[in-house]
Design a protein around this nucleic acid. Sequence first.
DNA 1: AGGAAGATCTACT
DNA 2: GTAGATCTTCCTA
Length: 191
Amino acid sequence: MNNEIDEESFESRSRLQKSFFARDAEIVAKELLGKVLVRKINNKLLKARIVETEAYYDENDPASRACKNGDLKNTMKMNAGTILVYGVHNNWLINFVTGKKGEAAAVLIRAVEPLNFDGKGNGPGLLTKSLAIDKSFHKKHIFDNQGYLDLRKDKENLDHEIVESFRIGVKKDLPKKLRFYIKGNKFISRK
DNA sequence: AGGAAGATCTACT
DNA sequence: GTAGATCTTCCTA
């Protein structure tokens, strides 16, 4: 695909729908694998394929920020597709709100594969640094942030096998595997 | 106003 | 494998 018209045509066909996010966090987490995060900076597009995600739920999930009252819990109840950014140990972590409005759920992006730029993607704090994602995206919607951050289907329909594991770095996990990554990908954060 | 915990990362041994 | 950096967020008072 090497002319502008094909590129434009693909771009418009490759948008995700709102209904994509309005489902259970586990489903969204799995289906986000292989999708492409697009970050626009000074009219340049940085593209990165999502290769690792985790699902988080409401106050019944001991690892979730929704266990504490406050802005993060409230944000997790917002419209599906809302961007949620929060800080841990001097790193910004990016999530997408999923499910029904009023119910707390989100998917954390844990690792990406840089497609057209140099930078690290193999960790939730590293990928936000590489893509210059910070708190300014918090509570913006993925479909309504002037294109500075977007999410697309991949051009190539790459087959991949999904591996499930328990979540990383959480003190108390649920008895269910809620971390998902693309088998064999070199950019996953940990084995 | 102050403190503790944390969905992390890096560097060192 | 372990320790320390470093700062946002939430809780307590």
